[in-house]
């Protein structure tokens, strides 16, 4: 079951590079992005989202899609961003492995790259339905130079 709603302090892990993680939730799965800026952490959270479905390394970044979103606060911006990616996955039947986020305040634009989902090559495990507000947390350690963003994704 869920045992870790709050993000781990990235300093304690002594790893300062941008990366993603999953964390457990009773029925679904949590995605966490860590990076030197909020934009980089958002990119990593999106990679974690792809990794819920399949190994991101198997997804070729051959098709480019642009997305944009905005929200009332930065937590909701993370949810809006992940939901924008989920909507593109769903509508275009694609998986994505490269994310380039540019945000300003509570508005975000991104270029995301991927390819059509291929059941044989990607062997996708689940289909994300939506990013939720559960375990939603953002920027806890920005004063130490790393951003950590996370929420649970319903699958």
């Amino acid at each position: 079951m869920f045992r870790q709603a709050k993000a781990m302090d990235p300093i304690k892990t002594k790893r300062r590079e941008a990366r993603w993680e999953h964390f457990s939730h009773g029925a679904d799965i949590g995605v966490r992005g860590i990076g030197p800026s909020r934009d980089k952490a958002f990119e990593q959270a999106a990679l974690a989202l792809t990794a819920v479905v399949c190994n991101p390394k198997r997804v070729k970044p051959v098709q480019r899609v642009t997305v944009s979103c905005s929200a009332a606060d930065q937590e909701l911006l993370l949810v809006a961003w992940l939901n924008a990616v989920i909507a593109e996955m769903s509508a275009r039947k694609m998986l994505f492995s490269r994310f380039s986020v540019r945000s300003r305040g509570l508005r975000l634009k991104a270029v995301i790259k991927g390819e059509k989902a291929d059941p044989r090559r990607h062997a996708p495990a689940v289909e994300p339905k939506g990013a939720t507000l559960t375990a939603l947390d953002i920027g806890r350690w920005r004063q130490r130079g790393l951003w950590t963003v996370q929420c649970v994704v319903d699958v």
């Binding site: 929200a71 909701l76 949810v79 939901n83 339905k129 939506g130 939720t132 559960t134």
Partner: peptide
């Protein structure tokens, strides 16, 4: 259905203060 759920959870979470609703969890 997933998109309807997604959009209205966010809209309702944003609108809650306007309705005087204090939500113990935003979800």
């Amino acid at each position: 259905g997933h998109q309807v759920g997604t959009e209205f959870v966010s809209r309702m979470a944003e609108a809650a203060p306007r309705f005087g609703l204090t939500l113990p969890e935003r979800d």
